[in-house]
């Protein structure tokens, strides 16, 4: 399968890329979301702007109370970064569960977020981490909280003329823990259900807990019902039972040839439970 014809331009910097943007242009980083879509002719841009060689987009930096991951950092680099592991371990372990090693060597966090596949791992991870997504347009930078970045099925708050430049991940305070578990579609390794949890515990009781779920609905979501059942509670089999039962509260559950609505809802509850149990 070969994509339809396009012009190829290589950007040397973010401002260079911004100056090349047009209505029918697409940004190309790792290409592991965009090229498969182009090969199927689901996407037929006039121009591809290659941003994969922009050094300023690849770094992973420590900025005090948070870390900054460049949008063109690969899943592999994030999974193996000691800085990321120390700041919020599920971000590294989640990155290491994306696709397979060849995919992780090429795919980037910014590309995955912009593509907003409802079965991708990053959306649940950045929502549970309460990350901020920094984007750059002609008018300058703006920050979008992860919780409001995803707006629908393959849709985001990113404007057509904007580039994702950085993902800011808050460092977890001492005593916190985080985890990401997923049930995969075995060939693609996309999530049929993926569940990310960040928990701050104080003396056995759950202080603040954030639970995000991907793969289940048209976009990743924060599972507030699950959180409400656990906030201020002692983590026990009973409280986990009550919480997991609310994994799909207030969302439309997807149905496709991998998993029916009923099955997916059940698996969502099972995997929310698995995630919560690791944090006991």
């Amino acid at each position: 399968m070969i994509p339809s014809k396009f012009q190829y331009k290589r950007a040397e910097s973010v401002s260079d890329a911004l100056s090349m943007m047009s209505d029918d242009a697409k940004l190309l980083a790792g290409g592991h979301s965009l090229l498969p879509a182009m090969k199927l002719r689901l996407n037929q841009p006039d121009t591809l702007i290659d941003i994969s060689r922009i050094e300023e987009l690849k770094s992973i930096k420590d900025e005090g109370d948070h870390i900054v991951i460049g949008a063109a950092a690969t899943h592999h680099d994030i999974a193996h970064s000691n800085l990321v592991k120390g700041a919020c371990s599920m971000i590294a372990s989640g990155a290491g569960q994306i696709g397979d090693i060849q995919v992780r060597n090429a795919g980037t966090i910014g590309g995955s977020l912009a593509h907003a596949d409802p079965a991708a791992d990053w959306p649940a991870l950045v929502i549970a981490a309460e990350a901020t997504i920094r984007v750059q347009g002609q008018g300058g930078p703006r920050d979008i909280p992860a919780a409001s970045f995803f707006t629908g099925f393959y849709e985001t708050a990113l404007a057509d003329d904007e580039i994702i430049t950085e993902i800011h991940i808050p460092k977890l305070p001492a005593g916190s823990s985080s985890t990401y578990v997923k049930f995969v579609q075995p060939a693609s390794r996309f999530a049929i259900v993926g569940c990310a949890v960040v928990k701050n515990a104080a003396e056995g009781e759950v202080g603040n807990i954030k639970v995000a779920v991907t793969g289940v609905s048209e976009m990743a979501y924060r599972a507030h019902g699950v959180e409400d059942e656990l906030m201020g509670q002692v983590v026990s089999d009973e409280s986990i039972d009550r919480a997991a039962a609310r994994a799909t509260d207030h969302v439309d559950v997807l149905s496709d040839h991998y998993a029916s609505e009923k099955y997916r809802k059940h698996i969502a509850q099972v995997y929310v439970r698995k995630a919560l149990e690791t944090l006991k």
Binding site: Y8, I101, Q102, V103, A106
Partner: peptide, 11 residues
Amino acid sequence: SAKSCTILAVQ
């Protein structure tokens, strides 16, 4: 290691 079916020659 990389999957050469999903990388453009120009990349």
